[in-house]
């Protein structure tokens, strides 16, 4: 959003009578409607590493602050996504690496990469497919949410997630992760992190619109002399591999995915159910036949 939305002119009073209806239209440029697919396009070339997303997320969802030590990993003292941290800004210093000197390295985010990581809300979400209680489900906005009134803390979603996002909290014994502000979407509000992001590095919107916007942005960057820009998680791009089809929250990156702690070609965990079961049943069957043969042989 580069300028104020026309509807902002409809509320000139100092005291409003309540939430601005469909505020997402003012802050993200589009209304939120059930039945559509929503997600985040995170353009890391606009990210200034300010962590407003981390704070806005914790403020909105009342998540506890649980870190009191420096990590020593550049300006990232958060470390990773967890049950109490649903947004994590990664900092990767590249100066000095492979002889890079800050004044000679190509411009624009090549020297110090910053990226706000979040749950990917995968199209075929391994956590959703693994969840035995139906606590994790796909909402009317095509997002993936853990319902903490159902979850019994079995923890199967934790190893299932190919991006290491969801985690069971040791404070309330339930699994937690980003809900793409499910409650805010129901109220027509833009998710807290996307609304707070100062440079619109985190862009919220309807998925197809986001993907086209991201494609044009990548071509634009190539034209501006940043050939390394590529999409991660959009249909048919790295990260949207192995049966995941695509990630509702996808990224524009300028370095290998692993540099940002992302797998280059993750896969859908449920793909491995059938092969494992088939081999298992075959072996069990084989041994059952053998047992039957032995037992009959024994009698003779």
């Amino acid at each position: 959003m580069t300028s104020v939305h026309p509807r902002a002119l409809d509320f000139p009073q100092p005291f409003l009578d309540g939430v601005i209806p469909d505020e997402a239209e003012l802050t993200a440029g589009e209304r939120v409607e059930a039945g559509k697919s929503y997600g985040f396009f995170t353009d890391t070339t606009l990210c200034i590493g300010c962590k407003a997303c981390e704070v806005a997320c914790k403020e909105w969802n009342n998540l506890p602050a649980d870190k009191d030590r420096m990590t020593g990993d550049s300006y990232d003292n958060t470390g990773a996504l967890s049950a109490h941290t649903w947004r994590h800004v990664a900092f990767i210093e590249r100066i000095g690496r492979r002889g890079g000197d800050s004044t000679t390295m190509p411009p624009y985010q090549s020297n110090w990469l910053m990226m706000s990581d979040v749950c990917k809300h995968c199209h075929n979400a391994p956590c959703l497919e693994a969840c035995p209680t139906g606590a994790i489900f796909r909402t009317e906005f095509d997002t993936v949410v853990v319902q903490t009134d159902i979850c019994n803390g079995c923890g199967y979603c934790v190893p299932a997630c190919p991006f290491g996002v969801v985690e069971v909290s040791d404070q309330d014994g339930k699994a937690h992760k980003c809900t793409l502000c499910y409650d805010r979407l129901k109220g027509g509000l833009e998710p807290a992190c996307a609304k707070a992001c100062p440079t619109d590095s985190i862009q919220f919107g309807e998925l197809s619109g986001l993907v086209t916007r991201a494609q044009t942005r990548v071509f634009e960057l190539h034209a501006q002399g940043q050939p390394a820009a590529y999409l991660y998680g959009a249909p048919e791009t790295p990260g949207a591999t192995g049966g995941l089809d695509w990630l509702n929250c996808f990224f524009l990156l300028t370095e290998r995915p692993e540099v940002y702690n992302l797998p280059a070609a993750p896969s859908r965990a449920a793909n491995r159910v059938r092969p494992a079961l088939a081999a298992g049943l075959a072996t069990a069957g084989l041994l059952t036949l053998a047992a039957a043969a032995l037992m009959r042989g024994g009698r003779a």
Partner: peptide, 8 residues
């Protein structure tokens, strides 16, 4: 707390 933990 939420800003203190960012640079603790």
């Amino acid at each position: 707390p939420v800003t203190a933990e960012l640079q603790p």
